[in-house]
Amino acid sequence: MSTITTGVYSRTYRQDFLLRRTWLERARLALVLLAIAVAPFLLSVYWLEVATQIAIAAIGAIGLNILVGFTGQISLGQGGFLAVGAFTAGLTAIHTGLNPLAGVALAGVVGAVVGGFFGLPALRLKGLYLAIATLASQVIITWSIIHLSFLGAAEPLAIVEPATVFGWTVSGTWEWFWVIAAFAAVAAVLATNLFRTGVGRAFVAIRDQDIAAEAVGVNVAGYKILAFALSSAFAGVAGALTAYRDTFLTWESFTFEISILYLAMIIVGGLGSVSGAIYGAAFIIGLQAFLQELGGNLQGSFPSVQENLPAIQQIIFGLTIVLFLIFEPRGLARIWQRSKDYLRLWPFRY
């Protein structure tokens, strides 16, 4: 539990429900927003690309955390739902002249429907059994993309039309970063709000004690499906953004490994925490990019490192996750919370 700032009193329940109560908290939020706004001026193109990928991954990870971290339904299918969103958006862009914003929204809706459908096994299965069932969704979705001829997606797709919204064509690394960062910010706000209300509480209730949840009147079956649908809607939006930004789509970018990667993000970041999903996305994508760059720099002096880079990456990856599980199962979000508490009390111990 975090230390509570003293001297903050509420006069109304509305005040008591506010997310940020002190000027310090508000200043911190303003700083983060400022950092995002000026990031393109400070980062190199390579790291700006990485930051954009982090923002996309954050949306998907927030979605997955709604399902796994908050509702307690383990899913190994997030990669599949990203693919659903990406291909919905890609095919919309290629076959109709629809506004990309509409394309993103459509991808969210289709993601929700497909996710809700693949959530049906959750009505009967729990824990590891459910994880295996969601693995099926991953396999079925990739198989469908390759084999259903009317999708025309066996070969990679290319979106020729640049993304144009109300006359403004999004182009260049900077603009894409801002657009996608804005989407990620909205996703974070929406998810945070969700857990301030009864719907979010019902999700957490199902995770903590599903029988009691049913006994206080939560329709457990309905809320499980809803959690799957919401989670996949976030994944759908993330997938759609990837499609519009990369303008090049292949099922190979949405394999089972991606699902595992997203699971790693929320474990490292912190299960059941919206900010944790963002930290996790930043950590995992950032770590990959860092190892990549490190490998490039070492190429001249240590050719063997360059050769074995994929293996080394895997090892470091596995190691980080194991270490997090052992030393801080509640992830980066918890570490951040603890450091805030420490600073708040500094220089006193308690």
Binding site: L190, A191, N193, L194, T197, G198, V199, G200, R201, A202, V216, G217, V218, L226, L230
Partner: peptide
């Protein structure tokens, strides 16, 4: 919970 009306859209906002 049973006395409340739950709407995902207003909840998200």
């Amino acid at each position: 919970h049973t006395h409340m009306r739950h709407n995902v859209l207003t909840a998200l906002l």
